[in-house]
């Protein structure tokens, strides 16, 4: 990490002494007000406020800056210099993703600390850990999706306004829905009936979410890495994309939500077929949006 020039540049740009002090001061004052309004008690209510501030900083602001990170290089006429540099596609990918959002993460981690403090007496540590992990991974996926969509867009056009960036941000935010689901439907409070069946095995919903979100975060990073390879004049083969399609269909067709004491509401096969079909259609549509997508089949030497 210390040697990645792109990440170091982001650190220089994002962290000034003023900004370093400002973030904890603003978040601290906000939370203090909430705490005082709530009769100086820490519980689920203050935890929800902490996570709401986290949403604003990490999901909204973070996804915005992630969506802008490459687009701003193009608008600022610095992208050619970066494309010709010695920074490899993987280093460039993670430095863009985590470097541009580092300030949002700085604020977000303070919020998650306050969230943990609020719940520490109420729910077990390992459960708080899983919830925090879901919020973090949802943030990474939202940022990665915003960046991914913006990188798909730069293959078609090289001039961007606020409207386009807002669109990429919204698409990124849609990837944060699982985090929002937890906030709205209170998975933290009651999990008695929150299980699902995946290929005839019953999993607690929260465990299943943690694992699948982590795996999809890795896939999102792989997607950015491959688009970065294309930007750095490297040839991508079709195999990784095909693997992702097969993986997504495999995961989604095995999933059924049900109550453990109630028989399955609908036959699994139709749910599988419907889910698989929808996902295939969406993924095919996405690859058709990508002008380099079909042509990547010509270069089968790369992954």
């Amino acid at each position: 990490m210390r040697g990645n020039p792109e990440f170091i540049r982001n650190l220089w740009q994002e962290f000034s002494l003023h900004r370093l002090i400002m973030m904890p001061a603003v978040v601290g004052i906000l939370f203090l007000l909430i705490y005082l309004i709530h009769d100086s008690t820490l519980d689920g209510w203050t935890a929800k406020w902490a996570i709401l501030i986290y949403f604003v900083i990490v999901y909204f602001r973070g996804t915005r800056v992630a969506s802008e990170s490459v687009v701003q290089e193009i608008n600022g006429k610095t992208w050619d210099t970066q494309r010709m540099s010695s920074v490899g596609p993987w280093s460039m990918a993670w430095a863009k993703l985590f470097g541009s959002t580092i300030y949002a993460w700085y604020g977000g981690l303070i919020c998650l600390g306050l969230y943990w403090m609020s719940y520490i007496e109420i729910i077990p540590d390992n459960r708080i850990f899983k919830l925090v992990l879901i919020y973090i991974v949802c943030g990474v996926i939202a940022h990665a999706t915003g960046l991914l969509v913006s990188m798909l867009a730069i293959q078609k056009r090289r001039d961007f306004g606020r409207l386009q960036i807002t669109f990429y941000q919204i698409v990124g935010l849609m990837a944060a829905v699982p985090g929002l689901y937890i906030l709205l439907f209170g998975i933290a409070d009651d999990e008695t009936y929150k299980v699902l069946v995946w290929y005839d095995t019953v999993f607690p919903l929260i465990d299943f979410m943690v694992v699948t979100l982590l795996v999809y975060a890795v896939w999102a990073l792989v997607g950015i890495w491959r688009l970065m390879r294309a930007e750095l004049q490297m040839v991508n083969g079709p195999w990784v994309w095909l693997l992702f399609v097969v993986f997504s269909v495999g995961v989604s067709t095995g999933v059924r939500f049900l109550h453990p004491d109630i028989a399955p509401a609908m036959p699994a096969i139709s749910l599988k077929a419907a889910t698989g079909y929808v996902i295939l259609v969406i993924l095919t549509y996405i690859i058709l949006l990508n002008p380099r997508g079909p042509s990547c089949f010509a270069g089968c030497d790369g992954m």
Partner: peptide, 15 residues
Amino acid sequence: RMAYLSDVFGVYDQL
């Protein structure tokens, strides 16, 4: 081993 400077170039203003 090469370098290119475009006619419309950019520098990082905050740095």
